[in-house]
Amino acid sequence: MRFALSAEQQDFAASLHDFLTGADPVGAARAWAQGRHEPGFKVLRGLAELGVPALLIDEGHGGLGASPVDLVVAFEALGYHAVPGPLVETAAVAPAVEAAGSWWPALAAGEVFATVLAPPHVPLALDADIAGLVVDLGAGTAAPAGHGEFVQSVDPVRRLFRLGTSAPATDGRAFDLGVLAVAAQLLGAGQWLLDAAVAYAKQRSQYGRLIGEYQAVKHLLADVATHLELARPLVHGAAVTLSPRDVSAAKVKAGDAAYLAARTALQVHGAIGYTAEHDLGLRLTKVRALIGAWGDGGFHRERVLTP
Rank of each mutant, 00 (worst) to 15 (best):
223 D>P: 00
110 G>M: 06
176 D>M: 13
184 A>Q: 03
132 G>I: 09
236 H>M: 03
28 A>Y: 01
195 D>H: 14
222 A>H: 12
29 A>D: 04
13 A>F: 01
256 D>E: 15
43 V>G: 04
95 P>N: 11
97 V>L: 15
243 S>N: 06
124 L>I: 11
196 A>L: 08
258 A>F: 09
267 Q>H: 13
220 L>K: 15
79 G>D: 04
122 V>W: 00
280 L>T: 05
217 V>E: 02
266 L>I: 01
207 Y>R: 08
258 A>G: 10
273 G>A: 10
237 G>N: 03
295 G>V: 08
8 E>P: 00
57 I>H: 03
148 G>R: 09
276 A>V: 14
54 A>N: 01
175 F>I: 09
208 G>S: 08
290 L>E: 13
107 L>C: 09
34 Q>S: 07
256 D>R: 15
275 T>V: 10
11 D>E: 15
235 V>E: 02
124 L>D: 04
66 A>W: 06
79 G>M: 12
111 E>D: 15
50 L>C: 02
241 T>R: 14
267 Q>M: 10
297 G>A: 11
228 L>C: 09
206 Q>F: 08
128 A>R: 04
79 G>A: 12
24 D>E: 10
202 K>W: 05
100 A>K: 07
10 Q>Y: 00
64 L>I: 10
96 A>P: 01
84 P>Q: 06
123 P>Y: 01
158 R>L: 12
204 R>Q: 14
55 L>K: 05
206 Q>C: 02
293 A>T: 05
48 A>H: 01
83 V>E: 09
227 H>A: 15
197 A>K: 05
41 F>M: 13
37 H>G: 01
208 G>D: 10
289 A>V: 07
220 L>W: 14
96 A>D: 02
22 G>V: 05
60 G>V: 07
247 V>Q: 09
25 P>S: 01
40 G>W: 04
252 V>W: 05
296 D>S: 13
108 A>C: 11
154 V>W: 01
64 L>H: 10
2 R>H: 13
282 L>H: 00
298 G>K: 12
23 A>H: 07
130 I>A: 02
67 S>L: 11
36 R>P: 00
32 W>I: 04
62 G>W: 08
12 F>G: 00
148 G>Y: 10
128 A>Y: 04
154 V>Q: 05
27 G>T: 09
267 Q>G: 12
22 G>Y: 03
18 D>P: 00
16 L>I: 10
186 L>Q: 12
288 R>K: 13
207 Y>E: 10
291 I>V: 15
263 R>L: 15
239 A>D: 06
139 A>D: 12
140 G>D: 11
84 P>W: 04
240 V>I: 13
99 A>V: 07
152 Q>W: 11
260 L>G: 03
255 G>A: 14
155 D>N: 14
